[in-house]
């Protein structure tokens, strides 16, 4: 069953994402240099496997860049 959430300010329909880890997989996010904020708070990386993604959640997925 799909669910609608907000990702970076846009409505997105998800099909597989029960957790943040599932969301990363479904969105084909690779590497480690990114952070995810859920409903106004950054999710600790250690919690990706357990942190749920629910209908109506608002996520911000932001790459961390290293240039100077």
């Amino acid at each position: 069953m799909s669910k609608m959430i907000r990702v970076n300010g846009r409505d997105v329909e998800l099909f597989e994402s029960g957790t943040i880890r599932d969301f990363i997989t479904e969105r084909k996010v690779t590497g480690t240099m990114f952070v995810i904020e859920k409903n106004g708070k950054i999710v600790n990386k250690e919690d990706y496997d357990s942190e749920p993604v629910n209908e109506g959640d608002s996520l911000e997925l932001v790459g961390f860049v290293g240039g100077g």
Partner: peptide
């Protein structure tokens, strides 16, 4: 930090 058109 910066890359391309943005940063943090």
């Amino acid at each position: 930090g910066v890359t391309e058109f943005g940063g943090q």
